[in-house]
């Protein structure tokens, strides 16, 4: 749909110029957005989502391939740019997984063949700790299973060039694998999070302060090594969680690597 997205800085809440003048967002990269509540994270997403033309609250401009985008891209749902994944999201339809996926594929104009339904399930099961079967009811899926299914769906069916992730719970889902699946789908991935593991997956961190972008941090080699350590700690936690689920007594001999 486009090659890159350029954010041209506007102003913060005190109408001071944003500290970052320009920021290119590229496909296949993960950007983490950090900052306290009220620092302007939601507003930044909204500016991107409506391809702000410099007249909004923040006076930011969002350019596609270095140009202002036509109005129709800005307003209609069919042309929207961002798919959302949030920790609060649930499946609410009382349907089986397989029937929902079939209905969903029909609605989004993809050929209704059993193959892609199977592909979504296969992807989801790569991420989920507990296996999801087609006849399961959507509403009874666990948190991890739901999230895995949502991520697989967005990666495979998502028509938008940007994916926004608002936290992913750490229980029952392989987060590293999830991020890889999303990045491989050739999209810009924005992650709003303060979870260390998730935040450090980002190639760049966009730091928000008082409504403006105050800093861009490139992940340095130390942070990358930290990410690897955090990931092994996370694996240990996962193993313990699994053992607890299976009803095991945890013994010294289990050797969890701690």
């Amino acid at each position: 749909m486009f090659k890159n997205l350029l954010i041209i800085g506007g102003q913060d809440k005190n109408e001071n110029r944003e500290l970052i003048g320009e920021l290119y967002l590229e496909k296949g990269k993960i950007y983490t957005i950090v900052g306290p509540t009220g620092s302007g994270k939601t507003q930044l997403i909204e500016d991107i989502e409506c391809l702000s033309d410099g007249f909004g609250l923040t006076k930011r401009k969002i350019l596609i391939d270095d140009g202002i985008s036509p109005q129709h891209l800005r307003s209609s749902y069919q042309n929207r740019l961002v798919s959302h994944l949030s920790q609060n999201m649930h499946f609410i339809l009382d349907m089986s997984v397989i029937n929902f996926l079939k209905m969903r594929l029909k609605c989004t104009n993809f050929p209704d063949d059993i193959k892609s339904v199977e592909k979504i399930l296969e992807y989801a099961n790569e991420l989920s700790g507990e296996k999801i079967l087609g006849h399961f009811s959507l509403t009874t899926l666990s948190g991890g299973q739901s999230r895995a299914l949502m991520i697989a769906d967005v990666a495979i069916n998502g028509t938008t060039p940007i994916i926004l992730i608002d936290e992913i719970e750490n229980a029952g889902i392989d987060r590293l694998r999830a991020m890889k699946i999303l990045v491989d789908s050739d999209k810009i991935v924005l992650v709003v999070t303060h979870d260390p593991l998730l935040a450090l997956y980002g190639h760049k961190r966009i730091v928000m302060k008082n409504g403006g972008i105050s800093k861009i941090i490139n992940r340095n080699p130390y942070e990358l090594s930290l990410l690897k350590q955090l990931h092994s700690i996370n694996k240990v936690t996962e193993t313990i969680r699994d053992d607890l689920r299976r009803g095991k007594q945890l013994e010294k001999e289990c050797f969890y690597g701690l």
Partner: peptide
Amino acid sequence: KVDMVSQAEREV
């Protein structure tokens, strides 16, 4: 209330 419901269901 779009923050409560999955992207897939909203698209449907």
